[in-house]
Structure formats: C-alpha cells, structure tokens
C-alpha cells in the first residue's frame, strides 16, 4: 500500500508542477504589459522600467517562474490590481463558502445517486427501475443553473420557502446558513447525482451478477446483507472514482450556482475578476483550484485503496 501511495503522490506532484507551469505561462500570454497595469497614470519610461525591475519582469522566464512558485509556496499570490487586497486574503474569504456549498452538493449527489442507483439495479425490470432511469436522464439533461433559476422563481420568490439569494456564515447562524444553502446544494447536487446514479447502477448490476454474491446467498445471508454488504461495498470503488472525476464539474457548477444565488464564494470572485481583468486574482484562483483538484484526486485514490484491498498490494495500477 505504501508503495502505491508513494507512486500516486509522485504522480500528483508531477501534475502539480506541470499545472503551475501552465498557469505561469498562461499569465505571461495575457495581452498587455503588466507594468502598465501597475503604473496606472504613470507613463514615464523611467518609472515604467523601475516597475518592470521591481516586478522582476527583466529576469529570465526560469527565474520568474522560480519566484512565482516560491511566492505561491509562502502563500503570496500577488495583489488584486482592482482592490489592492492580497489575492490570498480574497481566496481565504471566498473559499469556505465554496467548500461548504460543494460538500453539501456532494452529499446530495451521493445520497440521491447511490440510493436511486441501488434501487434501479435491485429492482431491475420493474417500474422503480424505469422511474430511477428517467430521473437520471432528466438530471443529466437539465442545465443546473436553469434549474436554479426556476427554483428561485417558484420556490424562493413564488412560495417564499427559501431565501432567493445571500449568505450567512455558519458561525454566525447555522440554521440560517443551511437555509440559504439548501437550494444551491440541491441544484448543484442533482446533476452529479445523475452521473453517480448511472455508475452505481451499472456497478451494482455487475456486482450482483458476481460469483461472490452467489456465495453470500448460499451462506444464507439476507437480501439486505447481500445487497448492502457484499454488492454495494464492491460497487463503492466505482462510485468513489466517479465522484473523484466529477470534481471538475462540481467546481464549475459551484461558480455558476454562486452567481445565481448571490453567494459570496470563490466562483463569484472568479467571474468578477475576469470582467475586471484582475489578472493576479485569476492566476491565484486557477492555481488554487488546480492544486485543490490534484489534492482531492490524490485523496480519492487513498480512499479507493482503503475500500479495495487489492489495490494496496498491487502497486502502481491506474
């Protein structure tokens, strides 16, 4: 197991380094002279040269990259050109909102997706399966943000069941916090639930046809034990992988969801930064997201090896 995790750790590190290079070069590819952006009103060549020197723009790309990485490691992601606030501070305020939203959405996706997936597999050929499949197809085909708009329109504004927008920190008022996040989490979670459902269903169908299920039945195990213990545990490997792969969708979805529900998260900050051409913020956001993605994927692999003992020994399988 240790060698497998070390191998995965090494792969993640390589990917992370590549990601920093992509972000670094991406920022260099931005149009316009960064010195000009900093100079503001100043147009005098001498002071521009001074700014260039101060920003390290005269160094070789390699040196610049080294400084960029060292800064990032120290938590220095630069300063917003619009607000003058350090990017790390901005991310620090937005990130908790996004993380809470994502975790709640993931919870919705897993609870909804796994249960409907199991039901569809176990009740194969019955109306319950048909219904679960139809639900999954709809979930896959509905644009989440539109679902959000409709939910706001009818559930929040129309019926007044939920607040239409805004956010209350959990520490301030947990109930109000959750009340504000129920709709966004449901909206963000349903699309992923559909994907989880389909994967759970096919993994369960495969597990249920396996020889070890026959063994479990031959032992006298109850249907609940056969399905819940033997089949589901084996299917979880697939489900965990799928959830890991949906992180990109989750992150993208969080951005849109925050925008619709007016949540002061990471996503809103990102979109604002694009329209304000606040490059240091964009760079920081992209870098942090990529790093988070790589980290979470590594953690998914760790979870994976805890669920399936074969991976612990097999080593560098992909």
């Amino acid at each position: 197991m240790r060698s497998y995790l070390l191998h995965r750790l090494w792969q993640s590190a390589v990917t992370l380094v590549l990601a920093t290079i992509v972000v670094f070069l991406g920022v260099r590819a931005l149009p316009g002279d960064p010195a000009l952006a900093f100079a503001g009103e100043e147009r005098d060549p001498a002071s521009l040269a001074a700014i260039r020197e101060r920003l390290g723009l005269n160094d070789s790309l390699v040196v610049q990259y080294g400084k960029f990485v060292l800064g990032a490691l120290r938590g220095d992601l630069g300063t917003s050109t619009r607000t003058g606030i350090p990017v790390s501070t901005m991310i620090g305020t937005g990130l908790p909102v996004t993380i809470e939203l994502s975790l709640l959405a993931l919870l919705v996706a897993i609870v909804l997706g796994v249960t409907t997936g199991v039901v569809a597999a176990v009740r194969r050929g019955r109306p319950a399966e048909w219904f679960a499949n139809a639900l999954a197809l709809l979930g896959l085909s509905v644009p989440n943000f539109w679902l959000g708009l409709i939910a706001i329109l009818y559930l929040a504004v129309g019926l007044g069941l939920f607040p239409a927008s805004g956010f209350v920190p959990f520490g301030e008022d947990p109930v109000a916090n959750l009340h504000h996040l129920v709709l966004p989490a449901l909206v963000l979670g349903t699309g992923i639930a559909a994907i989880v459902m389909r994967q759970t269903r096919s993994a369960m169908l495969e597990s249920l046809g396996a020889d070890y299920i026959r063994t479990a039945r031959a032992k006298g195990a109850s249907p609940r034990a056969v399905i819940g213990r033997h089949a589901l545990r084996n299917s979880l490997v697939v489900v965990v992988t799928v959830v890991g792969l949906q992180l990109g969708i989750l992150i993208s979805g969080a951005v849109v969801t925050e925008r619709i529900f007016g949540l002061p998260g990471f996503g809103k900050m990102t979109i604002d930064a694009v329209f304000q051409r606040d490059y240091p913020v964009i760079q920081g956001v992209v870098l942090v997201t990529a790093a988070a993605y790589i980290l979470i994927n590594f953690l998914v692999d760790v979870a994976y090896s805890l669920i399936d003992p074969r991976i612990r020994v097999a080593g560098g399988q992909s």
Binding site: A19, G248, I251, S252, V256, V285, A290, Y293
Partner: peptide
C-alpha cells in the same frame, strides 16, 4: 487537463 475544470 483534468486539473483545469472547463469553467476555469
């Protein structure tokens, strides 16, 4: 490529 979600 997977580390950069489509929105980013």
């Amino acid at each position: 490529m997977l580390a950069f979600p489509f929105l980013l």
